Simulated assay, not measured.
Amino acid sequence: MSLWTDLRDFFFPRLCVACGNRLLSGEEGVCLRCASSLPYTHLYNKVGNEMEQCFWGRFPIERASSLFYYAKGGTVARILYAMKYDGQRKLCVKMGEWIGSELLPTGFFDGIDCLLPVPLFRTRERKRGYNQSELLARGIAEKTGLPVCRNAIYRLRNNATQTHKSGYARWLNVQELFCATADAASLAGKHILLVDDVLTTGATLVACADALSAIGDIRISIVTLAWTK
Rank of each mutant, 00 (worst) to 15 (best):
R89M: 11
N173W: 09
G129K: 00
F178E: 08
G96Q: 03
W98M: 13
D110A: 15
W4V: 13
G87Q: 05
A180Y: 02
K165S: 05
P39R: 00
E134G: 00
A77Q: 14
G74R: 11
S36Q: 13
L136H: 03
Y70F: 15
W227N: 10
A35S: 13
E27R: 06
C92N: 11
G167M: 09
Q53K: 15
T144H: 04
A211C: 04
K84D: 04
A71I: 05
N159Q: 07
Y130R: 02
K72C: 02
L194A: 01
T123A: 07
G57C: 11
L38F: 14
A203S: 15
Y44I: 01
T75V: 13
W227E: 06
L15M: 13
W227G: 06
R78P: 06
Y40R: 15
L67D: 08
N158C: 02
L135A: 06
R157F: 02
R58Y: 09
V17M: 08
K72A: 12
W4H: 06
P60Q: 10
P105W: 09
L199Q: 11
T161P: 14
L146R: 01
V198M: 14
L38K: 09
V223Q: 08
L80A: 04
T106L: 06
L120F: 06
N173R: 11
L43F: 15
P39A: 05
L38M: 14
W98R: 14
G107E: 11
R170W: 02
S101P: 00
C179Q: 15
L199T: 11
L193H: 10
G74P: 00
T204E: 02
T204D: 03
M95F: 12
V118P: 07
P119F: 02
E52H: 12
T224E: 11
C149S: 08
L3R: 10
L172A: 10
K165R: 15
L91A: 06
V118C: 12
L199W: 07
A35G: 04
A182Y: 01
Q162D: 01
A82R: 10
P13G: 00
G167L: 10
S36M: 10
I140M: 05
G29R: 03
G100D: 01
V30W: 01
A203Y: 05
V118N: 06
A184N: 03
F12R: 02
G139R: 01
L116R: 00
D9R: 12
C92K: 02
R78M: 10
P119V: 07
V174N: 02
S166R: 03
P60D: 12
I99R: 02
D197F: 03
G145K: 10
F10S: 07
G167C: 01
R150I: 07
V148Y: 05
C16F: 07
Y40S: 04
Y130K: 07
P105N: 05
N159G: 02
T123L: 03
Q175N: 12
I112E: 05
I220P: 00
G57W: 08
W4M: 10
A185K: 13
I215N: 04
